[in-house]
Amino acid sequence: MELHFTLNGRPETMEVDGSKRLLDFIRDDLGLTGTKEGCGEGECGACTVMLNGEAIHSCLTMTGQLDGGELWTIEGLEQNGELDVIQKAFIKKSAVQCGFCVSGMVMSIKALLLKNPHPTQEEVKMAIAGNICRCTGYREVKAAVQEAAAAQSEEE
């Protein structure tokens, strides 16, 4: 099928197999390997991307569902050489260890902060409950979200 969508802010048109997993489309066809596969069944969150403002599991989504939509992957967050507030906060709060969960984690948080710029601790936990991290115990991640939220509201 012919697919029209925007990728990280830029319009794209491509001929694709609409039944392909979105995750494979992103990694293999778009060559954006920042999105990871940890389980392939919607349980780990490593493959999280943002589609039309929602954090979704790209391993459970078909590429056809992208048609007419707006897709953001981790590669799109750094703009003009400047990291997104969430990325900065992850570095500043040392929320990154092996990093394998990080792109998915950051995308979940991106979707959260878009909708809810001042989340409570509980809301933060809920937003990343589907993103499993084996390295950090989540404490630094939660702190990074608060940091990002604060930085974002300062910017505004």
Binding site: F90, I91, S94, V96, G99, V106
Partner: peptide, 23 residues
């Protein structure tokens, strides 16, 4: 001192390649 992850930038931007990312 803090900021101890050598590859933090590569990891938060998805630019760091793990073995399975290379083709």
């Amino acid at each position: 001192k803090e900021l101890s992850n050598d590859q933090a930038y590569g990891k938060v931007t998805g630019r760091l390649h793990y073995c399975g990312d290379e083709t």
